[in-house]
Design a protein around this nucleic acid. Structure first.
Length: 867
RNA sequence: GCCCGGGUGGCGGAAUGGCAGACGCUGAGGACUUAAAAUCCUCCGGGGAUUUUUCCUCAUGUGGGUUCGACUCCCACCCCGGGCACCA
């Protein structure tokens, strides 16, 4: 007899698992594989229960799959590069590596304390040269294929920091986060990009493979982000400017082109300077242009900014009707999207309407809702507002073309089709599909990241670092200030190199890579973490991939997952992998909240994981997070409910402890093999790891029969909850019911023989094993087993034992329950009907009425329809 | 504006067209104890009838519909959360 002492038990079994290398895995084509992965953490601060929830879900899945005979890969690593480490290092006068490694040490200790079943031999840390050299290797392969390239791009620039700011660092609608009095400027600087847009169509198309196995909203968000748009490009010739050429616009509504009352260019459109040169208003236009150009590039600001712009003084010719339309510059037109130029059709577009209203442009109507008389009077009536003949609201829906030359009268869909073909035939336009997705800017002017492996030579220009010179190591002792250009640029030893081609003096690239690069392929490295010849052995990846189950926060629904999908496709084209998608199934767990908001250090509402393990033990922490809410929903932390979880585990412990005590007392009786197991031995499932449940005496007593039935029914439901639906909370509720039933059958020694007690308690233990692994091991030992629980498979369901002999059937009259009858399982409709008619409650409602219909579902219910 | 979720007791939640509220928390009462803690047992959606027992009735955001039967399926709306957004 003892007490449940989780801290002792947990340390004991963690040690034993490590000794027996229980969680170490190797690729083995003879065994079915299962790769389950939780998103790798960024090691900062300490771990709280929000982290633990994520890893607990993954661990339950890993342990269930192991019990079911799968060869399970379940690794862990660290997303170790990044800005916060660099900033923390500056603040604390230390090195980012020191700060990061200290955090990794703490994170690792906490994860081990929770007993997660990782193969720690495969641990990776992205800030190690052994890892990031492969980022560089991949970069060079992409460079060879034109997927990595350099171009000027518009960025947020703080003139005081002299550096580029991320969008998140632009605050208060356009100011620097560190210099709140300094307005951020839009600047154009050279940056490295990866051509994600080369895969736009595939990234979109392959989402179909993920539908149903990824959360709907994640698929929707990705689809949205990629933003496919089908339309047409049309050329408008510039009038009266010699050699200015043509302006190409993109539109999804070519059918409204007769209603175009202006061409509007992005302020950064290359043609703008040329157009305003030599006009009467040139000086004013240039001033206005400069103003529009320096406004923030932060997306929220663009979205909320008021429409602004100016007339260039020039005109363009509408190729459809030969009419001249004014050329404007507008702040709402983005160079990055489409062609950087639009035709403004105010009558049929919200944004154009607003612009035209502000600047007094014409608003000609060319689409009407109704198909009928196509005349001006009629269409204007439809739009009329204040009697000035202009529409009060743009009509943005499809309808019927009017005032559109020979296209008048066509449905919008037909007009779009015909006008695009005609434009193509005449050579001033064509159908076109464009995407919202942009190329991925990976340049960072920071220290704590992967150096970009290229060299600039006066003579040879940009030269890639040869593979044999990889990795390009980060300098060991940088000067970190957090200001000015990249810390790498100020280190002469790093920057000054010989050109790999000509041997002459050259300069090394000083930008580092975005940390999303690290996390885009790390899960492949787990397959082969020590490989120093290649990022990984394709054969090993072929065995383990795709990831069977990926688990992480919804926050990474777009960027991380999109980049990972992109990287996979690039690797496929490099011949490293054969699959299109790296992640077969995705699960996004809910947040752990306290006081209605996510746990975070800055809010001061964290419940530390160590603290939890100290007070209640890891198993209580694990089962609480599983029980308190379904895994995809947010979970509000409740101290009282943890007590409930703690009480439950104690209840289970006492039960097994008492049983073990009684068995010890009964000298001469051993639980192993004295009574031949019969009834429950039959195997009923095909799972690779299924083992027959331990045996019960041949002829069970009524009390035994009931307990065994409840136990196997529970097993049935728990198995389902683990396999299909991940209803861990229901699974635990089911086990609680079984434990309650065992308590209700007390005292067990009266009418329940030790072998039956043992069978039932073993089932409880096995069902708990994936969730509270330490306690389960301890109970297994207390039940007399000397082999660890890790050697035992998931128990087979004995449907024979689970079957009910007698069922209670609710009897409805006109759909309302009026009584219940007890019948043997499988009773026929007639039998049930006979008993139901005899039931006083039912009879009262049937009295004197005609039975119109009887619906009977065997063992479920009987419904009598009367009228 | 568009796209996803979600709305069930005091609370977390259960119920994959078949007894709404399993299981847990909180609360109330009881047993054990000198006492407390721990433990064990009972009760716990609203209204009504019935003096014990039980019965009736309302109730899963709102309003319709399909069905013998709807928390569950369909339509419309309201509210909450999240994502995207001058995207041409």
């Amino acid at each position: 007899m003892g007490d449940y002492k989780p801290q002792e038990i947990e340390a004991k079994w963690q040690k034993r698992w490590a000794e027996h290398r229980v969680f170490e895995t190797e690729a083995d084509p003879k065994k079915p594989k299962y790769y389950v992965l939780e998103m790798l953490p960024y090691p900062s601060g300490t771990m709280h229960m929000g982290h633990m929830r994520n890893y607990t879900i993954g661990d339950v899945v890993a342990r269930v799959k192991r019990m079911r005979g799968f060869n399970v890969l379940h690794p862990m690593g660290w997303d170790a590069f990044g800005l916060p480490a660099e900033n923390a290092a500056i603040k604390n006068h230390t090195h980012p590596r020191v700060w990061t490694n200290k955090n990794i040490g703490e994170f690792q200790r906490t994860l081990r304390r929770f007993g997660f079943s990782y193969d720690w031999r495969r641990e990776i840390s992205t800030c190690e040269p052994e890892y990031y050299r492969w980022n560089q290797w991949f970069f060079l392969r992409m460079l060879e294929r034109g997927i990595a390239y350099k171009k000027k791009s518009r960025v947020n620039w703080c003139p005081k920091c002299c550096t580029v700011l991320a969008n998140e660092q632009v605050i208060n609608g356009g100011f620097c986060w560190r210099h709140e009095d300094t307005r951020v400027e839009a600047r154009e600087i050279e940056q490295w990009f990866l051509k994600t847009t080369a895969y736009s169509e595939q990234l979109l198309e392959d989402l179909k493979q993920l539908e149903g196995s990824w959360p709907d909203r994640v698929v929707a968000m990705q689809r949205n982000w990629i933003g496919k748009s089908t339309g047409a490009k049309v050329l408008f010739e510039v009038a009266d400017v010699a050699g200015a050429g043509k302006i190409e616009i993109f539109t999804t509504r070519i059918d409204t082109i007769y209603g175009a009352s202006a061409i509007v260019l992005a302020p950064t459109h290359p043609l703008v300077a040329r157009l305003i040169a030599g006009t009467a208003g040139q000086a004013a236009a240039e001033k206005k242009l400069a103003e529009l150009k320096t406004s923030s590039v932060k997306t929220e600001d663009i979205a909320t900014a008021e429409k602004d712009g100016f007339f260039t003084g020039r005109y363009a010719v509408n190729p459809f009707n030969g009419e001249k339309v004014p050329i404007w510059v507008g702040n709402f037109v983005l160079l990055e999207y489409g062609t950087g130029a639009i035709m403004a059709v105010p009558a049929h577009d919200e944004r154009d309407f607003e612009f035209a209203s502000k600047f007094g442009l014409a608003i000609p109507v060319v689409v009407q809702r109704e198909e009928k008389r196509f005349n001006t009077e009629n269409t204007e009536k439809e739009h009329r507002d204040h009697g000035d003949g202009k529409p009060a609201q743009p009509l943005t829906d499809y309808g019927y073309s009017v005032n559109s030359g020979k296209y008048s009268g066509l449905k919008s869909e037909e007009a779009i089709e015909r006008m695009a073909s005609d434009a193509e035939a005449k050579g001033f336009g064509r159908k076109e599909t464009i995407f919202r997705l942009r190329d991925w800017g990976i340049s960072r002017q920071r220290y704590w990241g992967t150096p970009i492996p290229v060299i600039y030579c006066e003579k040879d220009g940009m030269v890639p670092v040869p593979d044999k010179d990889l990795p390009v190591l980060l300098p060991a002792n940088p000067k970190l200030t957090g200001e000015g250009e990249s810390p790498l640029a100020t280190d002469p030893e790093f920057v000054n190199v010989k050109c790999p081609k000509c041997g002459g003096a050259a300069r090394r690239e000083s930008d580092t890579m975005d940390t999303f690069v690290d996390s885009s392929w790390y899960f492949y490295r787990y397959c082969d973490p020590q490989n120093d010849k290649a990022p990984f052995d394709p054969a090993k990846a072929a065995y383990w991939f795709p990831i069977d189950q990926y688990i992480g926060g919804i926050t990474h629904a777009i960027l991380h997952l999109l980049y990972s999908r992109f990287w996979c496709k690039v690797m496929r084209d490099l011949g490293l992998v054969k699959h299109d998608e790296p992640i077969a199934r995705l699960f996004t767990q809910g947040m752990v909240q306290k006081g209605g908001v996510a746990m975070s250090k800055s809010r001061g509402n964290v419940v530390g994981a160590e603290e939890m393990a100290e007070k209640y033990g890891a198993d209580t922490g694990r089962i609480y997070t599983l029980f308190a809410a379904p895994p995809e929903k947010d979970l509000e932390w409740s101290e009282e409910s943890i007590d409930g979880a703690w009480r439950f585990l104690n209840r289970v412990f006492r039960l097994v402890d008492k049983h073990a005590g009684e068995v010890r007392k009964e000298k001469g009786f051993t639980t192993e093999g004295t009574e031949e197991p019969q009834s429950s031995q039959r195997r009923t499932t095909q799972d690779p790891g299924a083992k027959a449940a331990p045996g019960a005496p041949t002829v069970p007593t009524e009390k035994e029969r009931e307990l065994l039935r409840k136990a196997h029914q529970s097993l049935q439901r728990v198995t389902q909850d683990f396999e299909g639906r991940w209803h861990f909370n229901s699974a635990i509720a089911q086990i609680m019911e079984l434990v309650n039933a065992i308590y209700a059958a007390e005292p067990l020694d009266e009418g329940v023989r030790p072998a039956v007690q043992k069978e039932v308690l073993e089932l409880v233990t096995l069902m708990l094993a994936p969730m509270t692994p330490h306690l389960a091991e301890e109970l297994w030992e207390m039940l007399g087993h000397t082999d660890g629980l890790w050697t035992v498979g998931w128990p087979a369901i004995n449907t024979e034992l689970a079957r009910e002999d007698e069922v209670e059937i609710p009897v409805q009259v006109n759909g309302k329950v009026r009584g219940r009858v007890k019948v043997a399982a499988g009773a026929s409709q007639d039998e049930v009907m006979k008993l139901a008619a005899a039931d006083a409650g039912v009879a009262g409602h049937l009295n004197g009425k005609t039975v119109r219909k009887v619906i009977f579902v065997a063992d479920k219910m009987l419904n009598v329809v009367v009228g």
